[in-house]
Simulated assay, not measured.
Amino acid sequence: MESNLLKVFVAVANKKSISLGAQTLNFTQSNVTNRIKQLEKNLEYLLFHRVPSGVILTKEGEKLYPLAVEIVKKVEEAQLKMQNINFQDTLRIGSGQANVALRLLPFINKLTKKFPNMELEFYVNANPQILEKLLDYKLDIAFTTGFPNHGDLISLKSFDDDLFLIEPKFKNYANCLIGYKKDSSHYKFLVEYEKSNDNNEFKTIFIENYEVMLGCVKNGMGKAYVSKKIIEKYGYMNELNLTKLKNEHKTHLVCRKDYIPLISSYLKEIQLI
């Protein structure tokens, strides 16, 4: 059984559509259809039911799916390891938005100078989504807020995050918490902090732009919890009240224990803000 046939099977199963699976793989629809038929012939089982909305797995397809996912994952892992066997050919980096604003560009600058032939790929999202991809071997390293409590991960490097509760200069402002995303670790901490201080009536605004977020706080729309370096970067140090809370958040550069980048020694020593 060819692993490429299983990769096609997994793509179609994930999308519940032959045409969408083909788009994911950048194949023609006829190519995908033929490969599914070939796999079904090899296994002597029908793997999909055709329905008006696309396809759904048969009972046999449902049994094959988790096995196929694992095989495809292992094959991709082996391919990446062989590509990088003598040098780090590709580095796939995950990051939350706060670290994009603070550290990603200096990080890229240092990597491209040190390893000019290394290809860099990026994925930006909140901690849960980043960790999911890291654990699924779809990222090599990731900047995370706090060290993830997971036995398969190790921290290569930690960075101090000088975080502050920020409020407008004037006293009266809306009882509203302003976060970057619902899954943001900083927003979650602020929610817990407010509830611990018996504030349960707050509203919430999510703004995926730190400069706009700071401007909203300045104008009395609510409060937020962000890094001092972000406040300095956008010139709001004299525009806001800053309060240090009892929290020692750190950013960690993490990777899987069983998939440590070849350049890990360099990453452990890299200096960023």
Rank of each mutant, 00 (worst) to 15 (best):
E44L: 06
G235S: 04
N86L: 06
V226T: 03
V75A: 14
R92G: 09
G220T: 05
A11P: 00
M237I: 15
I263Q: 01
K110Y: 03
A101I: 02
L5F: 00
G151S: 15
S185E: 09
L134T: 01
L105K: 05
H150V: 06
L253C: 03
G61F: 03
G21T: 00
K133P: 07
L5K: 01
S264T: 12
I263C: 11
D183K: 05
K257C: 06
N238C: 04
S158V: 07
I263E: 04
I141K: 00
L57W: 13
L6Y: 05
L153I: 09
K73D: 06
I270A: 09
I260F: 08
T58H: 08
L240G: 04
N200R: 12
V191F: 03
E60S: 03
G179Q: 07
D136A: 08
N14D: 13
K188E: 13
K169D: 13
V254S: 06
I166G: 00
R256T: 10
P66S: 02
L272P: 04
N247P: 10
K223L: 10
Y236A: 08
V55M: 07
L80K: 14
E232K: 14
Q271C: 00
L177D: 00
A78D: 13
E208M: 10
G61D: 08
E269K: 10
L39D: 14
F147R: 11
I230V: 04
E62A: 13
E119G: 09
T145S: 15
L6G: 08
K113D: 12
A224P: 03
I108T: 06
K181N: 08
L165S: 02
G222I: 02
S3M: 09
I130K: 00
V191L: 03
P66F: 05
Y259V: 08
N4W: 14
G179N: 03
G222K: 00
P261W: 09
V226G: 06
E232A: 15
A11S: 08
S95P: 12
K228T: 14
Y180D: 05
K113F: 06
H252F: 14
K41S: 13
V55L: 04
E62F: 12
D183W: 02
R256A: 12
K250V: 10
C176Y: 15
D89P: 13
K181C: 03
K59N: 15
E211Y: 12
M118D: 02
S30Q: 07
S196P: 14
F143G: 07
L43N: 09
K157H: 06
P148C: 01
V212W: 09
H252D: 08
